[in-house]
Write a protein that binds this DNA or RNA. Structure first.
Lengths: 240, 240
DNA sequence: TAAATAGTGTCTCTAAGACATTATTTG
DNA sequence: CAAATAATGTCTTAGAGACACTATTTA
């Protein structure tokens, strides 16, 4: 029998964590939630900004996604956001404490639902605006890379899905939804084409109410399905 | 100091693995490579078919993707396939040996490059045809679900990328590439539209040679870039 | 020259972009 | 009624689908 066969179970196991890119729109800008690493010098990257996250607790989390939802609830008080797995990044060197794999999720939440949770380490949670697809602070670990993966995914999917609707507090008007698209895409969107596109997918329902913000009141809508986005048959700008 | 704070490092760590859905086209059908679990009754799911994969070896694999490439090389002898991470699935119950996370990758390889590696456990590696998007055997663990996630991703991306080109032995003719699309999509593709679409993206280069299989010889092409697919501005059938 | 496969041309259709126009409100 | 914002209408355009047609080979 060869001696090179791996053992049935590995002697050493990697660290396993989940990290979240939680996005919202505030003050007409896309923001991401960051937390400060503990100041304790025995921890890696003390006092640096990082994506909220943490290790799987095998006694507590039933699934990877449960762990992500738990973290989100702890930080924001929100328990049913739009949540999507972006991917996993694992290597021997990304965490000085050892071989580690992290699982990146992104969440979209309407900012008025958020109650940043006080207490313990969450007191240092803060919204950071995204300038040119990135955050100005330098982040702990490889979190800058994880964040840009999440942003890249968001950016790509906004071209052909209704994701920005999950950033709007319900009910919302069509101009508000359009603005949400423009903020995420960071470019102007043509109104008439936008409306045809949205209505063709029929994922909104009228509340019957209107909102009087500017001059002519705008019709209010809510999502027909809170649990999944709508898909458009084409992207916004097929070439550009 | 509260006693509910998690420890800096978790006491228990999940098992971490990689599983591969390796696709190829043989005999005009999409196939996936499966391996038999060891017959040893002390192992879970003895003698069942499973996706090739295994635990991360922290002393050996530098990254998650390295681990996937290593497994692929061990099973097929191929070292630079198209390889893409599909996602991670983790839960307390998916492996009877404990909390486990697996990372699913899919690979596309031209079947004539493959040399199924003999020896040890690899002697039991076999190509299985996909009928109606699935394999007829029942698979170990949650591998049926992992496989369908991989197939779903492949299916979705074929609508707007050049992925089927990675299934064709180079050089290939346009009718051969079209057939590759039809096999993966499991539907007919219209020739004229197909050719316009392919040439518009300019990801092929002519070899100058032709292949004489049927009557009129067909021009031979190879990929301009082996490392990434081309993206089309629209999907194949915008509605249907 | 018939059969078969490779490759092209033409017309239609769908959904997006541009941009002008109409509608409804407040001051 | 003027200003402002909401909503609609019309024309163009890009790229896919349908399908007829031409081109090049072998038997």
């Amino acid at each position: 029998m060869p001696t090179t066969l791996p053992p049935a179970l590995p002697a050493e196991r990697p660290l396993v964590s989940v990290d979240l890119a939680i996005f919202t729109v505030r003050a007409d800008r896309l923001h991401v939630l960051l937390v400060r690493r503990p100041a304790d010098a025995s921890e890696p990257f003390p006092h640096q900004w990082a994506l909220p996250g943490g290790f799987i607790q095998v006694g507590r989390d039933q699934t990877l996604e449960d762990c992500a939802r738990r973290k989100l609830l702890e930080k924001t008080g929100i328990d049913s956001p739009y949540l999507e797995q972006v991917g996993a990044v694992g290597s021997a060197t990304r965490d000085p404490r050892g071989w580690s794999v992290t699982h990146v999720y992104f969440a979209l939440i309407p900012s008025d639902d958020v109650v940043l949770q006080p207490g313990a380490n969450a007191s240092e949670a803060q919204w950071h605006p995204l300038i040119e697809q990135a955050v100005t602070e330098s982040l702990a670990f490889d979190h800058a890379q994880l964040l840009s993966q999440a942003i890249e995914r968001l950016h790509a999917k906004v071209e052909y899905t209704s994701l920005p609707a999950f950033l709007c507090p319900e009910p919302f008007t069509l101009p508000e939804l359009q603005r949400s698209y423009e903020i995420v895409l960071d470019r102007a969107v043509e109104k008439s084409a936008f409306r045809k596109r949205i209505f063709a997918q029929a994922f909104l329902e009228e509340t019957g109410e209107t909102r009087i913000t500017g001059k002519r009141p705008a019709a209010l809508y809510r999502l027909r399905y809170r649990d999944r986005p709508a898909y458009f048959p084409r992207t916004f700008s097929p070439r550009s």
